[in-house]
């Protein structure tokens, strides 16, 4: 299974692998929003955590259809399904590879780009922490969506429609926890729910995604 993770990471970092696509999109959002909002740094500071979260979520969405589609097209997915690896493990490794190449860079970049949004001082920490806890759920849910749409040509639209509603709890509680943390309010509950969504996704969705792939390969 480690071999699969290493291969996927290698493929992403090589030419044409699509690494940096999400990050570039995220940067574009954080650069453009201040222009759109205008020179009101207090307003910008208030909406900064939410905008950073939405930007990270959309950037994450961009690369989802690559998770299984390329493997499906070149026949690797068939061969992986007949390999000794459990398909649940394959799915988990795919989600992990997606997180390492998308969720983790976004998490690390968010505090950096936060400066563009006049993010308050405490915000750097809170945006980083909430994204660190929330992005694994984004990758896992996205992998599940990708598994559902794996056989479809140009399934990207359907994938987005399927996945976006499932992303809402993570977005809601991620941005809210960041906001509460910045304002110095009680954040324990929302943080617990955010972590719960991530833990639940990681615990359940590999099985659902593997089942979806089995059906789609028939």
């Amino acid at each position: 299974m480690i071999a699969l993770l290493v291969r996927d990471l290698r493929l992403t970092f090589r030419a044409g692998g699509g690494f940096g696509l999400g990050l570039a999109f995220f940067l574009i959002v954080t650069v453009l929003v201040p222009f759109g909002v205008g020179p009101q740094s207090d307003l910008l500071a208030r909406i900064a955590p939410g905008i950073l979260w939405v930007g990270a979520l959309l950037a994450c969405l961009l690369s989802l259809d690559r998770i299984f589609q390329l493997d499906f097209e070149d026949g690797s997915l068939d061969l992986l399904a007949t390999a000794p690896l459990p398909l649940e493990g394959v799915v988990t490794m795919k989600a992990l590879a997606h997180w390492v190449t998308t969720g983790l860079p976004l998490t690390l970049a968010a505090p950096l780009f936060g400066g563009l949004m006049s993010l308050p001082q405490a915000g750097y920490f809170w945006v980083f922490v909430t994204l660190l806890i929330g992005t694994p759920a984004l990758s896992m849910i996205g992998t599940f969506g990708a598994a559902l749409t794996v056989g479809l040509k140009r399934g990207g639209l359907l994938l987005s429609l399927l996945v976006l509603p499932l992303y809402i709890p993570t977005l809601l509680f991620g941005a809210e926890t960041a906001r509460r943390g910045i304002m110095g309010m009680d954040y324990a509950q929302t943080l617990a729910i955010l972590a719960g969504v991530s833990a639940g996704s990681i615990a359940i969705l590999p099985f659902a995604a593997a089942a979806a792939i089995r059906i789609n390969l028939r």
């Binding site: 480690i2 071999a3 699969l4 291969r7 290698r10 493929l11 090589r14 030419a15 044409g16 692998g17 097209e73 070149d74 026949g75 690797s76 068939d78 061969l79 992986l80 007949t82 390999a83 000794p84 690896l85």
Partner: peptide, 30 residues
């Protein structure tokens, strides 16, 4: 199915990887 190796029309190769890397991956998987 665990005793069966299947070779389909598609070879399951990654064009960005070298011959050795492709083969070593499948060897590691198995």
């Amino acid at each position: 199915p665990e005793t069966i190796a299947y070779a389909a029309h598609a070879d399951g190769l990654k064009s960005q990887l070298t011959v050795t890397e492709n083969l070593a991956f499948w060897a590691a998987v198995h």
